[in-house]
Amino acid sequence: MARSVWKGPFLDGYLLKKADKSRNSGRNEVIKIWSRRSTILPNFVGLTFGVYNGHKFLPVIVTENMIGHKFGEFSPTRTYYGHGVDKKAKRK
């Protein structure tokens, strides 16, 4: 079910401070965040976030289309390379 509108978008407040800080300083640096649950707001557009996936900070360049999504959606937590081909079976 969708979130009630009157609550506004959910995000961890400290992200706003972090975003402001990096904007005021010399731009284009990766802002490391752990808060995968936070909504991407319009004023994050153009910034680069390093979103933690439990292993690494994956760089996410925020574009206009991403507004309304959560940060976690852009930083996959699982690695899957597909099933290897069984060598024994091939020989037969």
Binding site: T63, N65, M66, H69, G72, E73, F74, P76
Partner: peptide, 12 residues
Amino acid sequence: KRLMDLGCYRGL
């Protein structure tokens, strides 16, 4: 298509 181009989980 939008989801796929965005590179978000649902797109993947």
